[in-house]
Design a protein around this nucleic acid. Structure first.
Length: 110
DNA sequence: TCCGTGACGCGAT
DNA sequence: CATCGCGCCACGG
């Protein structure tokens, strides 16, 4: 399965009112170090709940007007914030464990 | 093929 | 809490 479609499918699993992070989505999709791939998919595929994907710790990684819109859309679905970050304690979505690849150590990959 | 770039992540300072 | 550096990965020039 092409990485982008499995990543897109993973993002689509995040329910309304819940959020996740680039890294968590990548891991759930089977790409332990594919956080940047997730970002790429979000940037190019429009038919996704893009506002539900945040940076580590619940940070909005967009800049300017886009960041404002993301925050607005999240609050519109009931997501609450703590300062500049989303209250992950209450809104982080935990993906059901699915055949994710076992992460290899850097030495194994060498 | 080499190099820069980016909606990233994390540890060190 | 703000920055920096470095690792990671796919793309494009």
């Amino acid at each position: 399965m092409p990485s982008h479609s499995s990543i897109a499918a993973t993002i689509r699993r995040i329910p309304r009112g819940k959020v996740s992070t680039y890294g968590a989505v990548a891991r759930a999709a089977g790409y332990p170090r594919g956080a940047r791939l997730v970002a790429r998919v979000l940037h190019e595929a429009f038919d996704l709940p893009w506002q539900r994907v945040l940076g580590a710790g619940g940070q909005i990684k967009l800049q300017g007007e886009s960041a404002a819109e993301q925050r607005f859309r999240l609050q519109a679905e009931g997501v609450t914030f703590r300062g500049r970050r989303v209250d992950m304690k209450r809104h982080e979505f935990h993906f059901a464990k699915t055949g994710k690849k076992k992460a290899r150590t850097r030495r194994e990959r060498r």
